[in-house]
Write a protein that binds this DNA or RNA. Structure first.
Lengths: 142, 142
DNA sequence: TGTATTATTGTATAATTGTATCATTGACAC
DNA sequence: GTGTCAATGATACAATTATACAATAATACA
């Protein structure tokens, strides 16, 4: 299993359900270029053992990612990153101004106890990542 | 279920509400060392049956203990004595929650056609605003 | 090869867990 | 009386787990 999955920590106390936390982690690994097109994900049972949850919980996360065409799960075969990941199609989007959106996001984060400089740094980090890992399409990576 | 819970007698005539009595008993079991970090508590329904009260009453007690970070209730999994996460885990979780929130926000905005530098600049703007006028909450912006 | 057998994969469904919401009860002030 | 409010109960719900299952792959053997 990809080492990145080993370091995937979950917060069992969070009000965010575990299966959504898993969805999030996988999406992030794709965005960051850790997972590429065609890569195999851990089996539901492997990942479940690693995370100490029931494999159905992992299966539920995979199911969501599958519905969103981010991954492709095949009974008896395994789970793979979808051939043409297009994360932008996954998001239910609303129209809002940039200013407004940013203000809301920053509001939310400061209310969670993050300081503005901290937030700025995180955004900087995100933006950097996007210029370092632009649309990776490496089919023969395995 | 831990035997200690079996001997947990409640006073239904007391003016002290049942849920508070339960809170008290659990706290006592912890200070007495009967319950240790990570131990699983009876399910709300188990304990409710044992004490002959409605399971919502037990749930209410558990909720209070959960808010106080004495126990950790997890839907579908059960209830456990709180384990204080070590410093590193805390920092990890905090960092992850920030990263994920930022990633989602940036995802959303780029999918709306804003470029990363553009987003970064908007955030910079927001952050500046807050450090110059820390009290103002920009009431009329929506 | 071909095929039977076994192991491994994800899937479907029901049971178990805590949560949210509203209804009922009972004590108490007026 | 009756209005109010906290405590408790009833019910429906959501997340997770347990179990049995079906599809695919891997293996053994003729």
């Amino acid at each position: 299993m990809n080492d990145a999955f080993r370091h995937m920590k979950l917060d069992f106390r969070s009000s965010i359900p575990i299966y959504l936390q898993i969805v999030d982690r996988v999406e992030r690994m794709i965005t960051e270029g850790i997972l590429k097109t065609g890569d195999q994900l851990p089996t539901v049972r492997e990942l479940a053992t690693e995370l100490r949850v029931n494999f159905n919980t992992v299966a539920r996360a995979y199911r969501i990612l599958d519905d969103a065409h981010i991954i492709s799960t095949q009974r008896g075969r395994g789970t793979y990153i979808w051939e043409e990941p297009d994360e932008n199609t996954l998001l239910d989007l609303r129209r809002m101004s940039l200013e407004e959106a940013v203000r809301h996001a920053v509001d939310k984060l400061t209310s969670l106890g993050f300081s503005p400089p901290e937030i700025l740094e995180a955004v900087q980090h995100q933006v950097d990542k996007r210029s370092t890992h632009p649309d990776v399409q490496d089919k023969d990576a395995d």
